[in-house]
């Protein structure tokens, strides 16, 4: 049945449909509705909900629950995600399936509670210590937030990895209908988990390998897994002209706005196409290489001063990629983006 909900509520409903067992979190604007919804729905269903004493506590409770084989999640916004990063490194090191939502706000420092996409480096490039990766999903609507929440738990189980859902203040706060129904999910067997059966007595969840060679083997094993994830899980939405005069690209709320910009450009006789990555790690580099032909200008838009664009440029070596960003909590107007795109097309001629 359709229900009109905020993005922040959709993520919790998706988690419930995916069979999430436990939620641990700490309040922060603009992510707090996630904790509100989790407390409202989890507790009456006899699932675990704990408002932790701090972000660090929350992510470590997630670590304990994930060690025990639960489907478990936490959520926060930029400053809170910074605090969770140590724990996320441990989750990656110990290969624990877990889901972390980052409803991005403005930074650095206290910043403000408006939308930005400036956690890209922190979330997509690591953030915590050590040589690890985490899968990052980037929804562009409330409906997609809901479906990605379900998918995140499956990916976490499949790859024994922390999975991020990266949204922002706009997506978190806006309402759209989601179509809620029973969805197939793939909960993995977790024979390695800690429980109270005699079989688990020999189980050990850890990220410490004192012996250098053992440690190297573990890290190499992680990276072999990362290579497979890169091969199998990269995903992007493509929209617009088959033979474009310009390719627009952006993720999340920006990617969605660019869809309207593609339509507006087409109205004024510019054939435009959009590449909207739905996974930020792994980054859908191949899609860029397939879609973007030599000489076609690329305009990359994000709510930050040039983080996402680095991955676009890495995907298109030698290609001119123009960055356009707004920050501070401001969203660009559509006409503003149309003007930027027109400028790129002019310059390319």
């Amino acid at each position: 049945m359709k229900k009109l909900v905020k993005g922040n509520e959709a993520v919790v409903i998706g988690a419930l449909v995916a069979g999430c067992d436990a939620y641990y979190g700490y309040p922060i604007t603009p992510a707090s509705e996630i904790a509100h919804a989790a407390s409202e729905y989890f507790l009456p269903l006899n699932k675990v909900f704990v408002q932790a004493e701090c972000e660090i506590g929350a992510v470590n409770m997630v670590f304990g629950a994930a060690s025990s084989g639960q489907r478990v999640m936490t959520a926060s916004s930029g400053p809170g995600i910074s605090l969770k990063m140590e724990g996320i490194s441990y989750l990656a090191g110990a290969e624990l399936p877990s889901v972390i939502v980052d409803v991005q706000r403005v930074g650095p420092g206290l910043g403000n509670i408006g939308p930005e996409q400036s956690d890209y480096f922190q979330v997509v490039k690591g953030g915590g210590h050590g040589d690890y990766r985490a899968i990052v999903l980037a929804p562009a609507s409330v409906e997609e937030t809901y479906h990605m929440a379900i998918k995140a738990f499956d990916l976490a189980d499949k790859w024994r990895s922390p999975v991020f859902i990266l949204t922002d203040a706009t997506l978190g706060q806006m309402m759209e209908p989601i179509d809620i129904k029973e969805e197939p999910t793939h909960r993995s067997d977790k024979p390695w988990a800690l429980d109270t059966t005699p079989e688990s007595n020999d189980n050990l969840v850890t990220s410490i390998y004192l012996d250098f060679d053992d440690m190297e083997e573990h890290i190499n094993k992680l990276h072999a897994k990362y290579a497979k994830i890169t091969e199998e899980e990269a995903q992007a939405e493509i929209y617009g002209a088959d033979v474009p005069d310009i390719v627009l690209t952006g993720y999340g709320i920006t990617g969605r706005m660019l869809r309207s910009v593609v339509d507006k450009l087409n109205e004024i006789g510019i054939d435009a196409a959009l590449i909207r990555p739905q996974t930020l790690w792994p980054f859908p580099s191949k899609t860029y290489q397939e879609i973007v032909k030599p000489g076609v200008p690329v305009l990359s838009v994000e709510l930050s001063c040039g983080q996402f664009v680095e991955d676009v440029r890495l995907s298109l070596p030698g290609h001119k990629v123009t960055h356009y960003g707004r920050v501070g909590g401001n969203l660009p107007e559509l006409d503003e983006l149309v003007a930027q795109a027109e400028k790129c097309v002019q310059e390319a001629k």
């Binding site: 506590g57 470590n60 304990g64 994930a66 084989g69 478990v72 429980d195």
Partner: peptide, 13 residues
């Protein structure tokens, strides 16, 4: 963080 991790373990078990 042992007490926080133990919270997650204990609630799950």
């Amino acid at each position: 963080r042992a007490s926080a991790v133990a919270t997650g373990v204990s609630r799950a078990n």
